[in-house]
Design a protein around this nucleic acid. Structure first.
Lengths: 125, 125
DNA sequence: TTAATGCATAAAATATAGTTTATATAAAGG
DNA sequence: CCTTTATATAAACTATATTTTATGCATTAA
């Protein structure tokens, strides 16, 4: 049970707002977020942990990947997330989005190469 | 113009949430809040400053007193304040309220004594 | 005009939160 | 098995936020 204080604390960091904004587009694994934000992985994991503790996101394991997505179980948090998405600077978010898409594409290309060599299903997406 | 980050940061401190809760009952001067929270005055002034910067409260001078009250100019902040008032632990807030009322009463008594001696209007409330 | 009151602010001290670097763990591939 | 990959976690470090203590500035009362 998160207190209102925990909830607001989770929202008072720019990196975490950027993560929420990224997850607007659907679930992502940690390495996607790392690429999109252009940050080191432990840093991203730290902030994902805070958001998860506060109940804003949840994770699910997919083999050796862990996907994160917005947790829409709680009405109040949902509405807070909506406010974040609305009121966040689009310019900054667009950069993240661009890096994300570049990364997703490169991941796909790599997988396609593997698929040419053998018929493995290396992509978890 | 406050960013969403500034707004959430202002709400991520327990003392500030207690102050918002106190101001639910109407405007108060700094010394009232100091008494209600049982904290030193500069500490309270610091937090009042943060809340004011973020646009949650506003002040108005009354002689040598400065009164603070909730600022209801912005819809979004108003709804956030409402959430705070709703979701804050009542037990803790009741203590603050009790101290506040005791203090207000003692202030009034003191003023009444003065009023017996001469017909001054020492109370600013 | 002096003293007292109500409050703000600055500086120093402390506490909390975030970041980095290094390492551990678990899953999958070879 | 051994390696590689994806992620988490711990420890040390840095930055930011809060608290304390001291002081200053108005305003009012004496």
């Amino acid at each position: 049970m998160e207190t209102i204080l925990t909830i607001f604390k989770a929202l008072s960091d720019e990196t975490r707002l950027r993560i929420l904004k990224l997850l607007e587009h659907g679930e992502l694994c940690v390495c996607d977020i790392v690429a999109a934000l252009d940050m080191v992985q432990p840093k991203v994991s730290f902030h994902l942990g805070v958001l998860k503790e506060a109940g804003f996101i949840k994770d699910c394991k997919h083999g050796r990947w862990i996907h994160y997505k917005l947790d829409d179980a709680d009405m109040f948090k949902r509405s807070l997330i909506l406010s974040v998405l609305e009121r966040t600077s689009n310019a900054a978010a667009a950069e993240d989005k661009k890096r994300l898409e570049r990364f997703l594409k490169s991941k796909k290309t790599k997988t396609d190469c593997i698929n040419l060599k053998n018929t493995a299903r290396g992509n978890h997406a």
